[in-house]
Simulated scan of single mutants.
Amino acid sequence: MIMLTIIGMAIVTMVPRFLPAFLMKQSTFKPWVNRWLNAIPFAALGALIFPGIMIDVFPKQPLVGIAGGVVAAVIALTNINVIFAVIGSILTVYLLTM
């Protein structure tokens, strides 16, 4: 019974994720709509990451989180592997809080 529940939850989770991918392949949009749709992931990431940088790193020292975010952004802009941006950000926050 547990296995059927897990399989059912997997199917219910996958359908809303795969359905838009199949529907979007068959449709074409104007160029400005495509530009707008391509910008959504960056906007969503910014909305999720920025408050965490400001509040959750060190609530009494928001500049530490901002410094870690700036280091991660600079490393990411150099097109280096994303793991180095994460490691650089972590090291920056660690060194600033020692």
Rank of each mutant, 00 (worst) to 15 (best):
I75M: 01
L23A: 06
G69Q: 06
A43F: 15
F50L: 14
V74R: 00
V15C: 01
I75H: 05
A72K: 00
P16D: 08
P51C: 08
G8N: 12
G68I: 02
A85N: 01
A10K: 11
L19P: 01
I7P: 10
W32Y: 11
F84G: 06
M54E: 10
N79P: 03
K60Y: 04
V57D: 04
V12M: 13
P51W: 01
M14A: 13
G65N: 03
V71R: 05
G68W: 02
G68N: 05
G8K: 08
F58H: 04
W32L: 08
F29T: 07
P41K: 11
N81E: 12
I75G: 02
L63G: 10
V93R: 00
G68L: 00
K60E: 14
L23H: 02
A47N: 06
G65A: 05
N38S: 15
L91I: 13
R17G: 09
M14R: 03
Q26W: 05
G8D: 09
V15Y: 00
M9A: 15
P16M: 11
I90V: 12
I6L: 14
A76N: 08
R17N: 12
V33L: 12
I6S: 09
T28G: 14
K60A: 15
G69Y: 09
M24E: 06
I90A: 13
L91K: 01
P20T: 05
L19W: 08
P31N: 10
V82Y: 07
A39D: 07
G65L: 05
I90F: 09
F84T: 09
M54A: 09
Q61G: 03
I66K: 02
L77A: 13
V71P: 01
N79I: 06
T92C: 07
I11N: 10
A44R: 04
L37S: 12
L45T: 06
N38E: 12
I49H: 03
A43M: 11
G8C: 12
L96T: 03
D56G: 03
L45M: 15
I87Q: 01
P51F: 02
F42K: 09
A47L: 13
I66P: 00
R35H: 13
F58C: 08
G46N: 09
L37M: 15
L63Q: 13
P16N: 10
N34E: 15
S27D: 09
M14P: 04
N34G: 07
R17C: 11
L23C: 02
L63R: 13
A39F: 15
L37Q: 12
V57G: 02
V74P: 03
A10Q: 11
I87Y: 04
G52A: 03
V64P: 04
P41I: 14
A44C: 12
L48M: 10
A85S: 14
F22D: 02
P20N: 04
P51Q: 08
L63Y: 09
K25N: 11
I75C: 03
T78R: 10
Q61I: 09
A85H: 00
T28D: 14
T5I: 14
L96R: 09
K60S: 15
I90T: 10
W36I: 09
A39S: 15
N38F: 13
M14N: 06
K30D: 11
A72I: 02
